[in-house]
Design a protein around this nucleic acid. Structure first.
Lengths: 192, 192
DNA sequence: CCAATTCTGAAACGTTTGTTTCAGAATATT
DNA sequence: AATATTCTGAAACAAACGTTTCAGAATTGG
């Protein structure tokens, strides 16, 4: 016997995420958020909660999308090495063409140190990223597509972290060739 | 015929740097800063300038210290490979034992996108870091301490960015073994 | 010691911050 | 259609923000 929520919550989260992604947590004001979300602050506080809670949901949303992407790629019927190389190349393109760095990386450095919930969401995300790489590397080794000389877990860990530095490099130097050559080298190391 | 500045500017910058380093730019308030610096805000505005200017100086100070360290290491008379490996191991220890991530990395993601001056300071710092690695790798190759199969410039670029991901990993997982194993793998790749 | 200059301390500045309030509009159930 | 419930919009909240002001203390060179 009552009124329903008027605004589309998941669309609003998406909009808020884009703002947080671009400006970071602390540089984003609530006014920035409600302008983008097109809702009143009272609605925000009634449904989602305050700024922190909203940010947690945005980070969660961001990592959910990534998890879906990894699952989709893992379900591919193509060779695991092809999937892996395609993933690396697409990731490079995102770094080079994307407007902003990875939100998970930015948030890890800005927020995860002080907010336990954000840290746990990002740690879980990083773990899934690791698992994604590990599975592809392991399968490639089992199929003989790449050498089994190295521990697949170590390689997965190594690339999973390598990743982050490419974003920093691109922020500072905006040099696409540099990123591409590092990615080439990585693939070469892997397939050698 | 006038009074002199009372406070030690470089000591105050050092204190401010520690606060910015720990909390990041946006999460640090001017009150945090003047409490740590033990000066009045009027003195700050008269001598250094506002918050942005102070931050720029702190980042500059941070990168100056790093530059000195690299110069000192390059002047060492020991073998370049030893110097490089020692540097990597000490860096790992800083990641594992340090209270906060590298200020240059944090600032790159939080501030460099929006502040051209900070971006340029950090880009110059990154360039010096690259040069440091490049010189050691090149010398090691010339002396035959490591294989010359790879382009030293590429290797230097590659490690220089690899670096950053180890900080992120440690923030999220606080797993020293993981970092150590990645460093071992890196050294192995280098000396192989 | 005087005069000229500059620095310091405390208070206040107008904004902006994240959050709350509440009257009234809106709707689902009966 | 009446009623009970809930959502929305605009305004207001205190607190904190970065910055400025200025009277007076301090120190220099003459």
């Amino acid at each position: 016997m009552a009124r329903n929520v008027e605004f589309d919550e998941s669309a609003a989260i998406q909009k808020a995420m884009e703002i947080f992604w671009k400006k970071g947590y602390n540089a984003t004001s609530l006014r920035d958020l409600i302008d983008a979300m097109q809702i009143n602050s009272s609605s925000l506080y009634n449904t989602i909660g305050g700024k922190q809670e909203l940010f947690v949901r945005c980070v969660q949303h961001y990592t959910d999308i990534r998890a879906q992407d990894w699952d989709k790629r893992l379900a591919s019927k193509r060779s695991p090495l092809d999937v892996l190389i395609e993933y690396i190349n697409e990731a490079v393109n995102i770094i080079i063409n994307g407007e902003d760095s990875c939100m998970a990386v930015k948030s890890a450095f800005e927020v995860a140190t002080n907010d336990e919930r954000v840290k746990q969401i990002l740690a879980a995300d990083d773990q899934r990223s690791y698992q994604f790489l590990y599975k592809l590397i392991k399968k490639s080794m089992d199929k003989g597509e790449i050498s089994s000389d190295e521990d697949p877990a170590l390689l997965a860990d190594y690339f999973n972290s390598t990743w982050t530095g490419w974003y920093e490099s691109y922020i500072l130097h905006k040099d696409p060739v540099k990123i591409k050559r590092m990615a080439e080298y990585f693939i070469k190391q892997l397939t050698k």
